Simulated scan of single mutants.
Amino acid sequence: MHIYTAEDIAAALNWGAVIDALREAHQGPRPQGDSYFIGDAGFGLFSRGVVLPGYGAGLKVCSINPGNSSLVPPRPVEQAAFVVIDEQTKAIAAFMDGPEITRWKTAADSALAALSLSRADSQTLLVIGAGPIAQALTAAYLHIRPSIKRVLLWNRSPEKLVHARRLIGEQVAVEVVSNLDAALEQADIVTCATSSLQPLVKGARIRPGTHVDLVGGFREDMREADDEVLRNARVFVDDYSTAQASGDICGPLKSGALSHIEGDLFDLCAKGATRAAQDRTVYKNAGGAHLDLVVAQLAIRRHRRQTSHLTG
Rank of each mutant, 00 (worst) to 15 (best):
R156V: 05
L152I: 13
G49Y: 06
I148Q: 02
V127R: 02
H143D: 02
S147R: 08
G33D: 10
R145A: 07
A134M: 09
D121E: 10
A130R: 02
I64Y: 09
A57V: 02
A113P: 08
G58V: 10
D121K: 14
I144V: 15
D34G: 15
E24D: 06
K90G: 04
T106M: 03
Q79G: 01
R103F: 05
R103L: 15
Q88G: 06
G54Y: 06
V61F: 02
E159F: 12
M96C: 10
H26N: 08
A57W: 07
C62R: 11
Y55K: 03
E24F: 00
G28C: 03
S35N: 11
V127G: 03
P31I: 07
G49K: 13
A140G: 13
C62D: 14
G42C: 11
R119M: 10
Q79D: 07
S122V: 04
A57R: 15
P31N: 04
N65A: 11
S63K: 06
G98F: 13
P53S: 12
D40M: 11
T102Y: 00
Q123N: 10
T138D: 01
G33H: 07
V162Y: 03
R165L: 00
H163Q: 01
L153G: 05
A139T: 06
G98V: 12
R119T: 05
Q27I: 08
Q88I: 11
S69C: 10
I92C: 14
